[in-house]
Simulated assay, not measured.
Amino acid sequence: MQFKGDKVVLTLFGERVRVLRQARSLSQEALALAAELDRTYIGGVERGERNISLLNIQKIAQALDVSLTDLLQFEQKTEVMREPAAKGFLNAKVIEEIGLSHEMLRQAIRDTYKLLDQIDATLETAEVFPLSQTVELANLSSMIGNIFASAIAKHSNDLLRRNRPHRYPDLLTTGISPQVPDLELKMALETNKPKGHLAKEGYYLICRYVLCQLDGSLQIGKEQRGIKPYIWEIRCGYLLLEHFNLSNTAGDSGKTAVVNAAGMEILQIVYCDLERAPLSRKGKTYQSYQQLFERN
């Protein structure tokens, strides 16, 4: 029998194990070897997927050289409303040229976070893992994209409306302002380039997100992904057919059109949560983002 809050407790315990392991510069494999457990088991514990036994908790504590009290020293934090990065909005003119504003994006991001948190709360009540651990990542990207598109329409002052599901483009101009074009919204994980089934010329909002820990912190790497989606980047601009790479690989789900490097370069960054950018802080790409903020 499971009780309400079990999933949260397992997730918090997993985060505690991960923090202590990394503080000791141990890999999951090294910890598993020291605790005489399987590496995949340790990975499951850190992701909050294992209903770990007391004996295995003791093994992990000994392997980490901490007491049971120290290992279990975590507490459930009170949920607070998540907010977009206060200083993350850039290139105001780019978004204003299509009749929108940074404030519209701010409200849409806030609403997206609010709804995602409400979904997770409902799943927790039903004793189910959070959304990011329940659906495949491709489906998660699609769901976040649909929620964000609806939120943009809501805060567009009736300038945009949602199109029907699986119809291009995602957002249709209502015709109130001739300045506002139809918009297609694409969502991708981390630094991936967004893709769809067809390449179509037009205005795009390209969004990328990361999966953070419960406290909102980001740990880079597939094995370190958390459970809370945060939008870390939004780009805006007009794409031509040449800005897509097309493929029709056998066994794939039909034709795919991926925004290529030239297309990503054409798009202007209008929002960036630099604290949660999935980039090496010493790398040139991260430094280019820093320079972008300095210029703005």
Rank of each mutant, 00 (worst) to 15 (best):
Q2S: 06
F3A: 15
K4E: 13
G5R: 05
D6K: 02
L10D: 07
L10R: 01
E15N: 01
R16W: 00
R16F: 01
R16N: 15
L31V: 09
A32T: 00
L37Q: 09
D38C: 02
D38L: 06
R39G: 13
R39C: 13
T40Q: 07
T40N: 05
E46A: 02
G48R: 03
G48K: 03
E49L: 10
R50I: 12
K59S: 11
I60T: 10
I60V: 14
Q62M: 05
S67H: 04
D70Q: 02
D70W: 00
L72D: 08
E75N: 00
M81R: 01
E83Y: 08
N91T: 06
A92C: 07
K93Y: 14
E96R: 00
E97W: 11
S101M: 09
S101H: 05
E103F: 06
T112D: 12
Y113Q: 15
K114R: 12
I119E: 15
D120F: 02
L123E: 08
L131Y: 13
V135E: 07
S141N: 12
M143L: 14
G145S: 11
N146Y: 12
N146F: 13
I147A: 13
H155D: 14
S156A: 11
R162E: 14
R162V: 09
R167D: 13
L172M: 04
T174D: 15
Q179K: 08
D182I: 12
L183W: 11
E184N: 10
L185D: 11
A188P: 06
L189S: 10
L189H: 08
L198F: 02
L198P: 00
K200L: 14
Y203E: 14
L205R: 02
I206K: 02
R208E: 10
R208C: 06
Y209P: 01
C212W: 00
L214A: 02
L214G: 00
G216E: 11
S217A: 06
Q219F: 15
I220F: 08
K228Y: 07
P229C: 13
Y230V: 14
I231D: 02
R235H: 09
Y238H: 10
L241V: 12
H243P: 11
N245A: 08
A250V: 09
A250M: 06
K255A: 12
T256V: 11
V258Q: 08
E265Q: 03
I266D: 06
L267A: 04
D273V: 04
D273E: 07
L274A: 04
L274E: 05
E275D: 12
P278G: 09
Y286V: 14
Y289G: 10
Q290V: 15
Q291A: 15
L292S: 14
F293P: 05
F293V: 13
N296M: 15
